[in-house]
C-alpha cells in the first residue's frame, strides 16, 4: 500500500476502498496539518479546518483529474479554509495562551531575534516550505529523513536495521531524498532567495491573511 501511486489510491478510494483512503490520509495529513499550523488558529478552528478539508476531498474524489496534483489541491483548499475561519474570528477569545500545543508555533515568532521581521518571516516561510516539501516525498524518503533528523539521531546501524537497508546505502539514499526535496514545487518560490523578501509571497499565513 505504501508504494502505491496517488493515482491508484484515488481510483481505489473512488471505488469505495477504505484502505486506499486510509493510506491517502496517512500520506497527506502531515501536509494539511502543516499548512494549518502556519495559521494562527485556535485548536477548535484547526480541527474544523482539517475535518472540512477531508470532507471536501471525499466529495471531490471523483473529480480529481490529476491525482499527482492532489498535494497542491489539498494545500490550496487548506489555506482557503484557514483564511475563512481566521476571518470568522470566532472563538478567538477562547485560545489558551498556555496551551503547550501552541508553543512550538509561537516559539519562533516571539523569540527575540537580531534579524528584522522580514527576514524572520522569510525564514518561517522557508521552514513551512520544507515541511510541505517533506510531506510530498515518497514514504521511504520520509522514514529515512525522519530518523536522520530525530533528536538524538539513532546510529546508522539502528537506522539500517529499522529500514532494512544496508548501512552503505543510507548516505546515497539521503542525498537522493534531499535532491527530491530541493526540487519540490513547494520550494520553488524560494530558490536562491537571499535573506530579503523577494517573491516568497503567497505561501505563509501572514502573507495569505493579508490578501
Amino acid at each position: 500500500m505504501t508504494g502505491r501511486s496517488a493515482t491508484s489510491l484515488v481510483s481505489a478510494a473512488v471505488g469505495g476502498d477504505e484502505s486506499a483512503w486510509a493510506e491517502l490520509v496517512r500520506r497527506y495529513t502531515p501536509l494539511v496539518y502543516s499548512v494549518i499550523r502556519s495559521y494562527d488558529l485556535s485548536g477548535a478552528d484547526a480541527s474544523d479546518v482539517n475535518q472540512t478539508v477531508w470532507l471536501r476531498l471525499v466529495e471531490h474524489l471523483g473529480r480529481v483529474r490529476d491525482p499527482q496534483a492532489l498535494a497542491a489541491w489539498l494545500a490550496t483548499t487548506t489555506r482557503r479554509e484557514c483564511y475563512r475561519l481566521s476571518r470568522l474570528g470566532r472563538r478567538t477569545q477562547l485560545v489558551d495562551p498556555y496551551d503547550d500545543a501552541l508553543d512550538a508555533y509561537h516559539g519562533f515568532s516571539r523569540a527575540p531575534d537580531a534579524a528584522g521581521p522580514d527576514e524572520e518571516l522569510l525564514r518561517a516561510e522557508r521552514r513551512q516550505a520544507l515541511r510541505e516539501g517533506f510531506a510530498q516525498l515518497p514514504p521511504r524518503c520520509q522514514e529515512l529523513l525522519s530518523l536522520l533528523t530525530a533528536d538524538p539521531p539513532p546510529s546508522y546501524r539502528e537506522i539500517a536495521e529499522r529500514l532494512g537497508m544496508p548501512v552503505g546505502s543510507i548516505g546515497p539514499t539521503q542525498a537522493r531524498c534531499l535532491r527530491r526535496l530541493r526540487e519540490c514545487p513547494a520550494l520553488a518560490p524560494f530558490l536562491g532567495a537571499a535573506a530579503t523578501r523577494t517573491n516568497g509571497g503567497d505561501r505563509g499565513g501572514a502573507v495569505a491573511a493579508g490578501r
Partner: peptide, 12 residues
C-alpha cells in the same frame, strides 16, 4: 539541509 529540515519538522 537535513538540520534545517529537522528544525522545521520539530517546530510543528
Amino acid at each position: 539541509l537535513t538540520a534545517e529540515l529537522g528544525a522545521a519538522l520539530r517546530e510543528v
